[in-house]
Structures are given as C-alpha cells and as structure tokens.
Design a binder for these strands. Structure first.
Lengths: 341, 341
DNA sequence: TCCTCTTGGAAAGACGTTTTTGCAAACGCT
DNA sequence: AGCGTTTGCAAAAACGTCTTTCCAAGAGGA
C-alpha cells in the first residue's frame, strides 16, 4: 500500500507534462536548449503539483552539503558576540533567512570543534562573527578549503578576505560630531578590551577625531565581561576624575546602561551634566531607558543578511565584484544628548 | 590532474581493506553477518584513512534531510523566548551540540514560514521553544508529519506530545519556601502575561502555596515586553501598595533587575526591606547585580540538550520510554534574600 | 556420499537529482 | 538535392551511501 502523501518528484512532473526528467530539470533550472513554450508548460505543471526538488539529492550530485556554519564562540574569555545578545540574535536570524532563501541551511556552531572537518559537521562555508586577531578558527577553516566570510574584519590580517562590516571610523566620527554639536567639550570613550576590529576601529577614529579637534583623548576600558556592572564600574571611575568628561560614547549598550546607573548614583544628571550615547541593535532597550539613549544604529540584520548573501555568492561561483560590504549606520538622537539651552 | 585532497570514500576503505563496499558499510554500521575479526579490521582501516561517511548520500538513501529546525518566534507580540536571550542562546547551543553529536544539524527558523513544508526548508523534526496555547506552528508541523518536541508544554493541550521542561510547580514551591524561611511574610509574584506553560505553572503553584500557607496571594503582571523597564514599572506599583510586599519572586531576571532599580529609587533596601528572587540562566548577570540576586537555576542547557536528544530518539526510531523529560532545578541563595538577623 | 543449513561476503539496485552525451528533425545554404 | 548547423529533447551516467538479494564454501547430519 503506497503512501498517497508522497511528495511529487521530478518523475511525476515529467510524466504529467509529457516530457523527460531531463527536460523538467532544464526547464526549472534555466539550463539546456528549450523553447519558451515548453519551459512555461513544465513550470506550470510543476507548480500545480507543488513540486520542490529534493535538496539532498541535489546536494549529492553537485557535491555540496547545503550547510553554512555560523561560529559564535571566540576562544577563551567571555564570548562578547554572544554576550551582546540582541545584536547577535538579530544578525543570526537575518543570516538564516537569507541562507534559506538561497537554498542553504544555517547551522549554529556552538564550539570551534563543530566545524572541524575531522570532528564536526561538514559545511560548504562559514560565517565567523567578530574574529579576534589572527583568529585560529578562521585559519583552520581556510586551510580546510572552506569559504569564510567574517562580520567585522580579522584584525591585523592583510590577506584578502571577505567581510561585512559597518564603516566604524565614519560612524564614530558622526557620533562624535553629534556630541560636539550638542555641547560636549570633554568627550570620553568608554570601550571594552575585546580584540576585534570594531573596538580597534572605534578607538582609532576617536583618537584621530580628538587630535583634529584639539581635544585631549580620554579612553576608558571596562572589564572584559560586557555587563552593566562592568559599565557601572568603569563609568564611576570616569566620573570621579578631577576633570570628569561631560560626554561619553560607550561602544556597547550595556556599558551605557551601567553608565546611566553610575551617573544616577553620583547625582550626575543626564543629559544636563553628561551627554551619553552608545551603539544599538534594533532592540528597544535604549529607547526605553530613562532618559532614552541616543544611539548609533549599526543594523545587525543587514550585517547578517549581507554575510550570508556574500557567502552564498562565493559558493555558487558568482564571484562578487566586491569582497567587502559596508553597511550604513545612522545616528538616532534621543533624550540623553538633548540638553536644554 | 586529480585532487589529492579528496576525502576517502567508502570505496577507498573497501579497496584498502581488501573487501567490498557492502562489507565496509556493514562493518561500520553493525549490520549484516560478519565475524568480529573482519569488523575490527575494517574499522581500523577506516580510522586510518579518516573515513567519514558522506552525510548527504546517507540522507538520500535513508530518506531524511538530516536537519532539525528550532523555532523561536511566537506569532505576534514580542518574542519572549528571544527577548530572554541568554536563556535561549544557552538552550540553542546545547541543542545544536547534541544534534551534531547525533549526525543532525540544527537550523534556526527565523520565522514560522521557514519550516513550512511548502515554502521553507525541509526538516526531519523540530524543536518549538515555549509554545503558546494552541500553538499554530506546532499544529502545522504535526499535520505535515514532522516530529515535534517542545520545551515547555503546549498549554491546554491534552494530546500526547513530547516535551522537556522543568518541574516549575516544584521549583516555585522551593523558592517560596526559601523566601518564607528567610522571613518573607507577604510574598508577591511578579510575572509576565506570556501565555506559555511556564507562567501558567508558576502562577498556579504560587496560588496553591499561598492557600496552603494562609497567605493572601498578590500577583502582578508586567507589560508584555520583558524589559527591565517593564519590571521597573510593575515593581513600582507593587511597592506603592498600602501594604507592600516584603518579598518578590520575579519570573524573569529582567523583571528582577527592574525591581532592583524600583526599590533603589523608592529607598527600599534589598534585602533588608524586600527579599528578591528570580530565575536564572547560567549568565552571570544576577550574580553580579548589587546586591547579588538569589536565583532559581533552570539549566537551559539541559533543556536544550534534552529536547534535541528526545527528538533524535524519535527520528531514529528509538521510541523513548518516556516522552517527557523533567530537568532539575536548584535554588541558589545570594545576598538579595540574606537578611541580617 | 549427499543433502541441508549456516556463515561470510559480494553484486546490484535504489534514493532523486544534475549533467553530459547523443540523436533525430528542421532549417539554411550552395 | 546535398550537406552542415542549429534546435528540441531523451537516454544514461554519475553523486556516495545503504539495503536487499544472492552465491559459494564450509559444517553438520543422515
């Protein structure tokens, strides 16, 4: 007794359309030499039967696995990409959506070993989020011949590589300009010791901006764990300086939330005594803080989508004209930098 | 010119071991009739060559996709599972690890449509995190003949189903006992309006416990978005009552963080005037709060691991003796319930 | 000795596609 | 009319594994 529920295969479509399976395959994939009339007819039949090619069979014949890996955990230390959860979640969701739309599946690699060709799961390509300097995972994957796209660049590496990133230098300058326009005179940078291109770029841009504007740079690094508590501690030290800053740009929103608390504890009013700005995912937290926080929106969805898209292009042999993708940023001004005149 | 890098296939192993591919397959999979001597020899050769069966080919012949989906977004409203992200991330990582260990890949389904048999990606089974009452996604998947395991139960559903969960009733009672022992007399429950089995279980257990202990129940629901801000607002209302509670159990850690802030704002000291406890992932946030928060550890990794394991058992035809799995909990007492005598 | 039963292992088919090759028919040119 | 070229499509091989079927050799019994 047959299962009547069996999905239609290419053979059923061929039989129904009165052609061979070859013709069906060619018609659906735009290959071969077929008159438009036949192509259309086959497509109509396929639609009617709800035909979807079996991905496993297709992968087998084209020699792929159909899987993309996304690696999240840096070696050692607190995994910052995962700590900054909202950012990572949005990046990953968008990447997964894009992968599926292109016939791939995005699988989460909980540890490095998951993508190890000998130990783990075989993937066609991988996305590495915020690689650290000389990231061993990136090397390992490259050596294994697996295509890699990183979000954020591999710091200090000159080798040609594919990445998707914001223009953090320009973004930082935009935000510093904003703080300056809003009256900030002694603008401090509150950042983390993470060794990723993001923090490097921001600090570099900050120092260069300060030099151009004749402002003495003031950089404070928080503890490596990206918690509000770490932000609280670091901000408290900043505010206890003999000449405390009158504006702070925090590189992670959690640091900013901690700063908010530190200011409140010390009776420092935001924005009257202190301008505060940070980066943002599309989460609502900065908007709902009190006062609402001015943010630099970095559009992690676009980063994730772009990374997956770039990777798919690579794998499908569509050499992208640009191996890099810059995602735009946007300064969203809110109460924390709106000072009464 | 051949690629010398080509992975060893079953044919190479067969040639090297001087047997047929059939024998290799049987030896490696424990099928067929072979003397132990042959089995061992073949295995040794396979190890030496680093042979790993091609998952795609295997899946094709056994008629599987090798993919498990994990659905994260509930329909409408703010996706609580994702908002409470540390919990979800840990659950998912553990599930992915377990899936890979069993030869499956876990793919993230960013939206319901991703698992739609007609529109999305074909999976062998799915994990649905915290289904809502009468969850449409669960039904859809079941109707499509896809095995489903949920973390948390489908509220109000009687149909036999596979799930992994904590014993939230027992866990809640443990925590309430703890608060009572530490001097709580008017213990309030701060929870969210999410329609998932977790919140239902906790509220039910709370009311029953109150009745048994002759305490008037006091349940406060926060706004549906699980932010610290929502916790702040709801806790503020609680503390403004004519007879405010002297202990609060918050069902999400963010609500507790908001409560901490509300208490500080109103000059209510924790733990001296107010005992505070909440649930926890393995994140460090509650431990690092000030004061450190007493938590109910729910071990989301175990939930994720268990769900994946159960699903794999189902798919591989190993009917589990128990379609349910209860993950243990643990009360971790910290400063927020340590009242000076 | 002949027959049957067990054991060890090989051959071949199947899974559902894509891709390569091949073959007619139609067409255009001289 | 004869010949090369295009056009439209089909047949068949291939992808790498698992599974079923089948055969030969040896063991045991009558």
């Amino acid at each position: 007794m047959r299962q009547p529920r069996a999905r239609a295969g290419i053979k059923q479509v061929a039989a129904e359309a009165g052609v061979s399976v070859t013709t069906v395959s060619h018609a659906l994939n735009g290959k071969g030499r077929l008159p438009d009339e036949t192509r259309q007819r086959v497509r109509r039949v396929a639609d009617r039967l709800g035909y979807k090619p079996n991905a496993t069979a297709r992968n087998l014949v084209v020699g792929k696995t159909g899987l993309l890996g996304i690696a999240v955990s840096q070696q050692g230390g607190p995994p910052s990409a995962v700590t900054d959860f909202a950012y990572f979640a949005q990046l990953m969701m968008a990447a997964s959506t894009e992968a599926i739309a292109n016939g791939y599946a995005l699988v989460l690699a909980p540890a490095e070993s998951a993508l190890d060709p000998h130990a783990g799961i075989a993937v066609d390509g991988a996305i590495v989020v915020d690689p650290v300097s000389d990231d061993p995972l990136v090397h390992e994957l490259r050596d294994a011949g697996i295509a890699v796209v990183s979000t954020g660049r591999v710091p200090g590496s000159d080798e040609p590589a594919c990445w998707v990133d914001n223009d953090h230098v320009a973004a930082t300058r935009s935000m510093l300009d904003h703080l300056s326009r809003r009256g900030g005179r002694r603008i401090a940078l509150l950042t983390s010791p993470a060794e990723i291109s993001y923090t490097f770029d921001v600090e570099l841009a900050y120092r260069s901006w300060c030099e151009q504007h004749g402002i003495a740079p003031c950089v404070k690094q928080s503890a490596p764990d990206l918690t509000e508590r770490a932000g609280y501690a670091a901000a408290s030290e900043l505010l206890a300086l003999p000449e405390p800053p009158d504006a702070i740009f925090a590189t992670y929103d959690r640091l900013a939330f901690g700063t908010l608390l530190a200011a409140e504890t010390r009776g420092v009013r935001v924005p009257d005594d202190l301008l505060l700005a940070t980066t943002a995912t599309e989460s609502q937290a900065p908007e709902q803080a009190s006062p609402s926080l001015t943010t630099l929106d970095l559009h992690p969805q676009e980063i994730g989508r772009g990374a997956a898209s770039l990777l798919v292009d690579l794998l499908d042999g569509r050499e992208p004209d640009q191996p890099h993708l810059l995602v735009p940023h946007r300064v969203v001004a809110r109460s924390s930098t709106r000072r009464a005149r």
